[in-house]
């Protein structure tokens, strides 16, 4: 397919993407999942947030290296009574953002159940990032960073702390998750062509696939890490809110 100037120029402005990924955001009620997501998609704190009813949806396109990735984000209600509804949304998710509240011990102790649910119901290649939210409330902290980090390592999760109030580290879990998924696509573990993987190619990637047989991820391969705990303090990239 010939790509003329028109398309090349417009690509910078338009929301084309290389990959489309489906994420779920899970965790106990009141841990700030919706606020985290709001901060991520709107770059602002969601004041007076109500409990989520059932499931809500939003999306954002991010840029990682050379790649543009569109994230379809499913925000779930944490309350037990919605569990039967929200569980159905784990199907075919490529990534899960598992959120607890560092000022609530209870939200941390229940994580095992959440993780078990996610692993049982979602894609087998589900990449999970553990997020300790409300890191701005250090004085009320009930869960130590080291403890959560240890638990995350034991369960083969990425881990970091963030604040949906200040926006601190809010993009990092999504970037981390996306990078891990891109790596598994690159290594051939995950095939975006197949339905149910939670990942699919976008228009840009398809064009590239047609022109060259192999996808290249540039610098990504160099930074490859074993999954484990990474304390990330990524500088927030400019407003690229979808």
């Amino acid at each position: 397919m010939p790509v003329d100037d028109y398309e090349a120029d417009a690509t910078e402005l338009m929301e084309t993407y290389d990959f489309l990924m489906k994420y779920i955001v899970i965790g106990e009620a009141g841990t700030g999942k919706s606020c985290l997501l709001h901060q991520f998609t709107h770059n602002s704190f969601k004041d007076h947030s109500q409990h989520t009813i059932g499931v809500e949806f939003s999306s954002r396109t991010i840029k990682l290296g050379e790649k543009r990735i569109k994230l379809q984000l499913w925000d779930t209600a944490g309350q037990e009574r919605f569990r039967s509804v929200t569980r159905s949304y784990y199907r075919g998710a490529a990534g899960a953002i598992l959120v607890y509240d560092i000022t609530s011990r209870a939200s941390f102790t229940n994580l095992a159940q959440w993780l078990a649910d996610a692993r049982a119901l979602a894609s087998p290649y589900l990449v999970t990032v553990l997020v300790g939210n409300k890191s701005d409330r250090e004085e009320d902290r009930e869960v130590e960073w080291a403890e959560a980090s240890k638990w995350a390592a034991e369960n083969d999760l990425h881990f970091l702390e963030a604040s949906s109030l200040s926006g601190d580290n809010v993009e990092a879990p999504f970037l981390l998750c996306t990078r891990a998924i891109l790596l598994s696509i690159e290594s051939g573990i995950l095939d975006p062509e197949k339905a149910g993987s939670g990942v699919s190619y976008g228009d840009r990637a398809l064009r590239r696939v047609n022109s060259s047989s192999r996808l290249s991820f540039g610098s990504l391969s160099g930074n490859r890490r074993k999954s484990g705990t990474i304390k990330l303090r990524l500088p927030g990239p400019g407003k690229k809110c979808c």
């Binding site: 690509t11 084309t16 489309l20 339905a195 976008g202 228009d203 398809l206």
Partner: peptide, 12 residues
Amino acid sequence: RDNQLDVGPSMR
């Protein structure tokens, strides 16, 4: 056929 829902600028 490709089951992808990305819309390029030309299409738009």
